[in-house]
Design a protein around this nucleic acid. Structure first.
Lengths: 152, 152
DNA sequence: GGAACGTTGTTGAAGGTTCAAGTATTCCGG
DNA sequence: CCGGAATACTTGAACCTTCAACAACGTTCC
């Protein structure tokens, strides 16, 4: 077996900062949303994506894609969101296999309330503590990562 | 209620790129480690932290801190790692409440094998696709986030 | 038309994480 | 040195995610 190309000291430091930072940051977002609004980050993400879609609805598969979740996970989570009254599902007329998920008015209101707090947390723990130049770099970096992941 | 300070378009784009990118990236790391070595990322992290500690051992509470996990979660995960023979636990002589977790030789070997693959994945999906200048910025950004989180 | 194959979405069970106690020990003021 | 408060770790149950299997429908091609 050939010797792997280990990371340089700086690369390792940067990579670790990201791993640690993102875990802890997500944890904070999660606690915050859950405490104030009874939503997990992934539930929140689902509501956001729906709210941004035309007519506030999306096919399950698309929603799963947008929210970076497996279809199975989305099914389960949607069931929960549905029983909370934030989301509803309907059959797709064109494709009888298909299902539309859409945001209810209650869901939209809940999202609106949650978003107001969430954006403050994002500022508080991320946007406002990171140098604006570095923030742009983070954007470029993860856009590159996403591109890498998307085309195999 | 006062109007929240919403994020600017660019800030939002950058923040989202991070959220999406980190979720998908972690998912890849997870699948990769699990498929090739039967380890989740969080198990891997535990082994790494132990391997870097003097005498390859750490108190449970410190390990939890280093690995960004709750103590409860660490207890459960350690039980699993212990049953795989990668980690063992012993009472702390000084503090009878305390427990040391330490890496077994088997654990060290498993980590060594896993790390060789893991570093390739990290390069493949992150380090090698991100501009070196941006990589440093990511490091700075998340170091700032960690600092913010640590001092309240 | 229909056989073979791919897609969509759901389900239940297995596995992992969180949460709220619970036990054991140490710390510290009086 | 005693009793209350704090700390270390574990446990079990509730909850969430993953995984494999499945039912239902669409697509292709003969």
């Amino acid at each position: 077996m050939t010797e792997p190309r280990w990371l340089g000291a700086a690369q390792q430091r940067d990579w670790r900062a990201f791993v640690d930072g993102s875990v802890r940051l997500t944890e904070i977002m999660d606690r915050d949303l859950k405490a104030k609004h009874g939503l997990s980050v992934s539930e929140y993400e689902i509501l956001v994506r729906l709210s941004e879609s035309p007519e506030r609805r999306l096919r399950m598969a698309e929603l799963a894609e947008h929210a970076s979740q497996s279809r199975s996970r989305l099914s389960h989570t949607c069931s929960r969101l549905e029983s909370k009254g934030l989301v509803r599902r309907d059959n797709c007329p064109n494709d009888k296999r298909g299902v539309y998920a859409f945001l209810t008015d209650t869901g939209f209101e809940a999202l609106d309330r949650a978003a107001r707090d969430h954006v403050e947390t994002v500022r508080d723990y991320f946007v406002d503590v990171v140098d604006p130049v570095d923030l742009e770099a983070v954007g470029r970096a993860f856009t590159a990562v996403l591109k890498r992941i998307d085309n195999g």
